[in-house]
């Protein structure tokens, strides 16, 4: 790891003030510390958000679940409120990485990083979440801009994410054998009348599958998506999964997610 200067601000404002040059925010660090260890990232400054108290809470009013940016995946997975309001979201959090990673990794960190194979972005998009930052709010549909790119401006820090509770939902993930990241993850959320289908892992960034959403809005049933062929154009292709295989898996996982949501 290259040398850097370490900061431990006590408020979001203090943290924002430190964000200059090659500074990086440290949330759970489950991605950032690895990249730094491998000398693939060399930030000049590390701003540790770990001790900012008001970033960690989880709130639910039954219709909306608001998760603090520094809430750990384990907190979300075990939260009684989340399990009650959006069980699929708790289940997704329980599927991220492994239990040690979930003890450290955060919702805000995952979303801000926008790894193409991360799980949380699928939930954000499918559950039409609102991302709150120190500078304002972002709609889910306008937040994820591309591989590792988001609508966050320099100096902007996620403070919380509010997910809308659907009528029913499920997230299904087809894992890369080695990394256990998603090769394809499909989050299906039925809001009664409207259905949102978000796909992660398959493309450079999370995306919605409009034809499936339409078919499921007409009839929320597995057979509605079972025969929808997903285009491979623009999908990721690597040694683990070709674009063709990923496209195929999107359909399979979507159908199985609908089955799971109906259970």
């Amino acid at each position: 790891m290259h040398a850097f200067k370490y900061h431990r601000p006590s408020s979001v404002n203090d943290a924002a003030a430190l964000m200059k040059g090659e500074a990086k925010l440290l949330a759970g660090g489950q991605t950032l510390v690895q990249t730094m260890k491998l000398r693939l990232a060399s930030p000049s400054d590390i701003i540790d958000l770990g001790t900012i108290k008001d970033l960690a809470g989880i709130k639910s009013d039954g219709k909306t679940v608001t998760i603090g940016a520094m809430a750990r995946h384990a907190d979300v997975a075990h939260s009684v409120d989340v399990k009650k309001a959006i069980p699929a979201l708790a289940a997704l959090a329980a599927m991220i990485g492994d239990r040690q990673v979930r003890a450290m990794g955060t919702c805000g960190g995952s979303i801000a990083n926008n790894d193409p194979a991360a799980d949380y972005p699928a939930a954000v998009l499918a559950l039409n979440a609102t991302i709150t930052t120190n500078k304002g709010k972002h709609e889910a549909d306008k937040f994820f801009k591309g591989m590792f790119e988001t609508a966050l401006k320099p100096g902007e820090i996620i403070t919380a994410v509010s997910f809308q509770a659907p009528k029913r939902a499920a997230y299904l993930k087809f894992k890369n054998q080695a990394s256990r990241f998603a090769i394809v993850g499909v989050f299906v959320a039925d809001f009664g009348g409207t259905v949102r289908v978000a796909v992660t892992g398959a493309g450079p960034s999370v995306f919605r599958q409009a034809d499936m959403e339409k078919a499921l809005a007409a009839k929320f049933a597995p057979e509605s998506v079972a025969n929808i062929k997903v285009k491979q154009d623009g999908l990721n292709s690597d040694m683990h999964a070709s674009a063709e295989y990923r496209a195929h898996l999107v359909t399979v996982m979507a159908r199985r997610a609908v089955e799971a949501a109906l259970k």
Binding site: Y6, R8, L26, G29, Q30, V33, Q34, K37, L38, I46, D48, G50, T51, A74, D98, R99, Q100, V101, A103, M104, S179
Partner: peptide, 28 residues
């Protein structure tokens, strides 16, 4: 060096974490 093997697992505040995936400063 990619946080997969878990040989570095310790308990921090009662939870198992990977001590290779965090800075010492995070354990203040």
């Amino acid at each position: 060096d990619t946080a997969q093997c878990g040989a570095c697992t310790v308990s921090m505040n009662g939870m198992a974490v990977k001590s290779c995936s965090m800075l010492a400063m995070q354990a203040e």
